[in-house]
Design a protein around this nucleic acid. Structure first.
Length: 469
RNA sequence: GGCCCGUUCGUCUAUCGGUUAGGACGCCAGGUUUUCAACCUGGAAAGACGAGUUCGAUUCUCGUACGGGCUGCCA
């Protein structure tokens, strides 16, 4: 086992975001490809916004995406005592101080600084106050940021980022109610969990400097940073509910295989030469921090669909059936019957090659999932009247004796077409409507083979009876 | 306002000073065809802008523009 430890640290404040999923994937790939550990920490220090439902959504999302983490999820809020302990330690060693400013006083100070165009970050007047002057009022604990010099963030993606210490504010470590703030909790938890590589969104790039302050004050080793660009919507704006599906559960419901999501998401912002379609194993061995792009990338459903199509076509039938069953369950639909499963196993051979999602796959297999009487899809109903229904009268009796193999069926159909002087392309729509009630079906012959003689003839007769007019 | 980051075909990207700037998705055209598709062949399509360094810049430096982030007793 290597010493690599990564983590995903989402805050449970809603559905699991697709951006969180990609960050999780990168961390997972990095750790799993290096025999390291991948941990999950729930950042629930904001009690007002954190919910159990959101936490479950994260767990569900991780499970669906197949991103297994080591050990149990860690709750950040449960570690509050340790955060307080560290804050007090910082206080004792003079690396932090008590600040008695009220919120309105802080706002006034801040506005003043803005009006004066002050180039420096916030500093409290209590920064160097003597304990003898302390009032009997609630206080927060602030870190004492250095006045001079600069902090360098060595980032594997962004390069060396230099930030002047005068730009770093004396951020709050402990709120006036004694509860720890995110910035402190992150640093302490990452250290305590032994996280060696922090791969996260680049909205945290500036925060890294603040967190380094804490690491330095405690003499802790600074982890390797990799700040990855955020995902944008198709309109180039930050991903939001207005321009994209933001939660992973939506992608699950759209019927994209988890493997395709992993493939697509990995390729979004990271590359391995010209490789577009790859397996988890390849991704694990190929993934590296150096090949992560620096600019945000737009989410492209067309490309996702293409990757999804490739994955579905390359999945073996048994596994596909298993996933399809899970999809049905997720959609709250009844499970397949044993008969349907048996037919599906056969039809997957020719239906899985041209669909881009599980929902399309199911549509393709409508001829199996429907039972007599076959209901027609709306658009078919209108076209029925223009079709040469008499072909059924000639065809159906002959199906009784033909050998039930594809080439014999084709031969027979061609013969019948000659008889009635029509092209097969003209009669095919009738057969599709009769067999599947749809125009989006697999090959007529493939359907006949899977359905079998009895069911095929049954459907044709029923169709003729219903629509002969 | 201050600070930080980014910018190659419509989109995702390759290129680590010298290439006809490559691939993929999508798009267009043609072919095949048993529908929707799938499949095959071909095509159009890019270095934000301006300086500089250099024999030579997409690549290095600076500036501008545009986009993004941080600047909370949110995470």
């Amino acid at each position: 086992m290597s010493n690599v430890v990564t983590r995903i640290a989402p805050s449970p404040t809603g559905d699991m975001h697709i951006g969180t999923a990609r960050t999780a994937l990168f961390n997972w790939l990095y750790a799993r490809g290096r025999n390291g550990k991948f941990l999950l920490r729930i950042e629930d220090t904001d009690k007002n916004r954190s919910t159990d439902a959101a936490q479950d959504a994260i767990l569900d999302g991780m499970k669906w995406l197949g991103l297994d983490f080591d050990g149990e999820p860690i709750s950040q809020s449960k570690r509050a005592p340790r955060h307080v302990e560290i804050a007090n330690k910082l206080l004792e060693t003079g690396k932090a101080y008590k600040c008695f400013l009220t919120e309105t006083e802080i706002n006034d100070l801040r506005n003043l600084a803005i009006n004066n165009k002050s180039p420096s970050a916030f500093r409290s007047p209590w920064r160097n106050a003597l304990p003898s002057t302390f009032p009997k009022k609630p206080f927060v604990i602030r870190i004492k940021a250095p006045e001079n010099g600069f902090t360098v963030i060595k980032d594997e993606v962004q390069g060396d980022i230099v930030i002047k210490n005068s730009q770093l504010d004396d951020m709050i470590l402990l709120r006036s109610d004694g509860s720890p703030v995110y910035m402190l909790a992150v640093a302490v938890d990452d250290h305590d969990m032994g996280v060696t590589h922090i791969i996260r969104g680049d909205d945290h790039l500036n925060n890294a400097a603040r967190q380094n302050l804490i690491y330095s004050a405690l003499n802790w080793a600074i982890p390797v940073y990799a700040h990855i660009p955020l995902i944008h919507g198709e309109d180039g704006k930050k991903l939001s509910k207005r321009n994209a599906a933001t939660s992973v559960i939506e992608y699950k419901k759209m019927g994209y295989p988890a493997a395709a999501m992993r493939n697509y998401l990995a390729r979004l912002g990271w590359s391995h030469g010209d490789d577009e379609f790859f397996t988890d194993e390849q991704a694990k061995t190929w993934f590296n921090l150096q090949s992560i792009g620096k600019s945000p990338s737009r989410f492209d459903f067309k490309k996702l669909s293409n990757i999804s199509k490739l994955h579905i076509a390359n999945t073996d039938n048994a596994a596909l059936l298993h996933e399809l069953t899970g999809y049905l369950k997720a959609m709250g639909q009844p499970a397949f019957s044993q008969a349907q499963l048996n037919s599906l196993l056969k039809s997957l051979d020719f239906t899985k090659n041209a669909v881009k999602s599980f929902s399309e796959l199911i549509e393709k297999n409508r001829f199996i999932l429907q039972e007599r009487p076959i209901s027609l899809e709306p658009d078919i109903e209108e076209r029925i009247k223009d079709l040469p229904l008499n072909v059924l009268k000639i065809l159906t009796p002959q199906l009784q004796n033909v050998r039930w193999e594809r080439n014999y069926l084709e031969e027979l159909l061609n013969l019948v077409c000659e008889q009635i002087e029509l092209k097969f392309r003209d009669v095919a729509p009738i057969l599709r409507a009769a067999l599947a009630g749809s125009s989006k079906t697999p090959s007529v012959f493939d359907m006949m083979i899977v359905l079998g003689r009895v069911e095929t003839i049954g459907r044709l007769i029923e169709f003729e009876d219903t629509y002969k007019n």
